[in-house]
Design a binder for these strands. Structure first.
Length: 301
DNA sequence: CGGTGCCGCATACCAAGTGC
DNA sequence: GCACTTGGTATGCGGCACCG
């Protein structure tokens, strides 16, 4: 059934004339008259009685109007809502993030964005980078936050699938408790001294530690003694404070502890490895208005 | 990519009713 | 009777889909 013919019928019913309907629909009365005739031919029933001054609905006309008027009105409202949604950020944003970043930094940014655009909702996925990149690739996330190092080893992030935008940079520092530092004589530590220590890591394959060793010594000790693996920065900091071993942290996570002297940095200095915390998107995906607004919001700092 | 057919619409015109 | 309003319809044009 042709929607335009139904709209012509609706307008004629409301005005009891083809002239009024034509004005409403911005067409000539001839077009209205023709649409109406075709609709009647299609249904096989007269919808109006042609009177001297206008058109009077038949019982079939009344019945049809009662059915289609709510439908056409709700259809128009729905289309209007969809159009206005395209003009302002709204809807669901699916975001992946490392656990520590998702807990500490992101909630503030999400709150500020939503204060500005209350029609936006978030679905936050906390997890390790490998899993988040897989979800992004499968189209189950709109963005993910990732750690990007200058490490020359092959990285999935450097494939042609993804586009990267740096949000901010942090120094990667190897730290331990003051007691652990003194017990293991870690002032001017060599790779051999460090290789004899215990380590704590975020990731089961301890990429963070390997990357730190490659950066500072251009090689990784053949055997690292991993005392703890935990994907939670608070747990990791507490374990380091208890002298369980050494762990690599983004500088912002342990700044207070380093300043108070509760933790000590090993080989600390300007030569520390830089982690560019970046926003990752699929390269060939055209970002929506909401996604573009969110990227702009994060990049604004 | 051009030919063809269909469809919606506008234009022009006709018919009928109404008011002065 | 005439001007005006309104509805109906023949005709032509333009846009679009389909096909070879």
């Amino acid at each position: 059934m042709d929607l335009n013919r139904l709209r012509a019928f609706q307008a004629v019913y409301q005005h009891n004339s083809t002239v009024g309907a034509a004005r409403t629909l911005s067409v000539t009365r001839s077009a209205v008259s023709q649409s109406l005739s075709k609709l009647e031919a299609e249904i096989g029933v007269k919808l109006f009685t042609r009177a001297a001054k206008g058109l009077v609905p038949t019982s079939a006309g009344h019945s049809l109007f009662r059915r289609i008027d709510p439908f056409l009105s709700s259809l128009e409202n729905e289309v209007r809502a969809i159009k206005s949604a395209g003009e302002r950020p709204s809807g669901l944003l699916r975001l992946g993030t490392p656990v520590a970043f998702g807990r500490c930094y992101l909630p503030v940014k999400l709150a500020a964005f939503r204060a500005r655009y209350p029609e936006v909702e978030f679905a936050l996925e906390l997890g390790n980078q490998t899993r988040l990149l897989s979800l992004l690739e499968a189209g189950e996330l709109d963005f993910t936050i990732a750690d990007v190092f200058d490490d020359p080893s092959p990285s999935r992030l450097r494939s042609s699938l993804f586009s990267l935008e740096t949000l901010f940079e942090e120094r990667m520092t190897l730290v331990c408790s003051r007691a652990y530092f003194e017990d293991h004589r870690l002032e001017n530590a060599t790779i051999e001294t460090l290789a004899a220590c215990n380590f704590l890591t975020y990731q089961s394959q301890n990429f963070d530690l390997k990357s730190w060793f490659r950066h500072h010594f251009a090689k990784v000790p053949p055997q690292l003694s991993i005392a703890l693996t935990v994907d939670d920065s608070h747990a990791l900091i507490e374990a380091v404070k208890c002298s369980l071993g050494l762990a690599v942290f983004g500088s912002h996570l342990v700044e207070p502890e380093l300043e108070s002297g509760a933790l000590r940095a090993v080989l600390s200095g300007p030569a520390d490895e830089i982690n560019r915390i970046s926003l990752v998107q699929l390269l060939d995906k055209k970002p929506s208005l909401t996604e573009r607004a969110f990227v702009k919001h994060l990049l604004a700092g």
